[in-house]
Design a protein around this nucleic acid. Sequence first.
DNA 1: GATTACAGTGAACGACTGTACACTCAACAG
DNA 2: CTGTTGAGTGTACAGTCGTTCACTGTAATC
Lengths: 217, 217
Amino acid sequence: MSNAVDIRTLEPVSEEPVTRQERKQRTRQALLDTALDLLAERPFATLSLREVAKGAGLVPTAFYRHFASMEELGVALVEEATVTLRGMMRSARSDPDTYRGMISASVATVHQFVRANEDHFRFLTRERYSGGPLARAIAVELRMFSGDLAIDLARFAQLRAWSTEDLHMLADLIVSVMITTIVELLEARPGEDPKITGTAEKRLRLILLGVPHWKTS
Amino acid sequence: MSNAVDIRTLEPVSEEPVTRQERKQRTRQALLDTALDLLAERPFATLSLREVAKGAGLVPTAFYRHFASMEELGVALVEEATVTLRGMMRSARSDPDTYRGMISASVATVHQFVRANEDHFRFLTRERYSGGPLARAIAVELRMFSGDLAIDLARFAQLRAWSTEDLHMLADLIVSVMITTIVELLEARPGEDPKITGTAEKRLRLILLGVPHWKTS
DNA sequence: GATTACAGTGAACGACTGTACACTCAACAG
DNA sequence: CTGTTGAGTGTACAGTCGTTCACTGTAATC
């Protein structure tokens, strides 16, 4: 097993971690992964240090070599999930410049990212309103997300005259629709995806239908 | 203490519970109240049967005389909070018939009910996405809430021609805005209420601004 | 007035929790 | 080659957990 080699090159396959840092980084990631796995079915507050350690193949006390507490692991998990969220934002940013194109493309992007990272999104949406410190960390991230969206929105001709306050109002509204959509996707039974994304597009279209008639203050 | 009387009538004050049913009902309510109290700061999943029992002045085993498990108590709590929710719906139903009047009156109703029943709303919004069976019970209730709203919306002249599917889409959108508002109110620092309700009104106004231009399918 | 029903008690259980402490042993620095 | 560092081990402890069981005392019933 530890002598596995590539048949063609006769060299070690995916060479094992040698340095201490690499090893440490791997078990740290193993802890995060098992936690995320358990979180697919239960709230974060119900996870115990011991079962996360056991799931990662560690003795309980070894946990402390990587995190001072479960809460610290939770924060790390938020950061990890946040990377996915930012990736989605970045991907959506390269969308077309028309409303109609933007809507369906954005919804498609959300759909794609949710399906590819269900655990991350489930974690974020579940813990968002859980109370506790994780909720605060997530709230900060979502505010940033919404702020970025507001900036993007300001580039549209229709919205150029809007007050920043109204832009944030609109961005929050859109984010709220997106999050609702994400939750629906995560709870969907197989085959329901098209209906959900369709409804999401409708909601966004209705909102943007009001934009030309809005009198900003 | 047990002989307390009303000074004017010289009759027992709020006569003590005599029947067994009354007594049982009271301790049951005490269990629900303690649980709700603890839930102000922590997710439901972290509550233990023992501490709820202790908070209600009971020995752990006595808990089982009222609920077969913590989960059953949670369901009862959802039902209790649901009564508040329905009360809010009923109160909002007596609103004026114009969009503008409806919006500000509905937001005011939400604001008033949230402030008068913070624990119930905090519980509902916290557990909504928690996973677990409570989330399902809450989802059912919110779907009913949204369904009722859709029926109410159908009475408006502007919406009479809409497909039921689109009406539900609109109702869901409004409910989502309301829930967002509720969460914001619950997390608000003192004095922020007007800003929050103002933003809520804006969001609803923007949505309803698009309604006349919507082509239903 | 005797009997029953039952809300609440109290001790005990086995399982699980977070954490302290002393340890091993391989990767690292000198 | 030698000494140090630190990731991971193993044992142990004091708490808490849900649940069991036999019990008490009183309101309700006949």
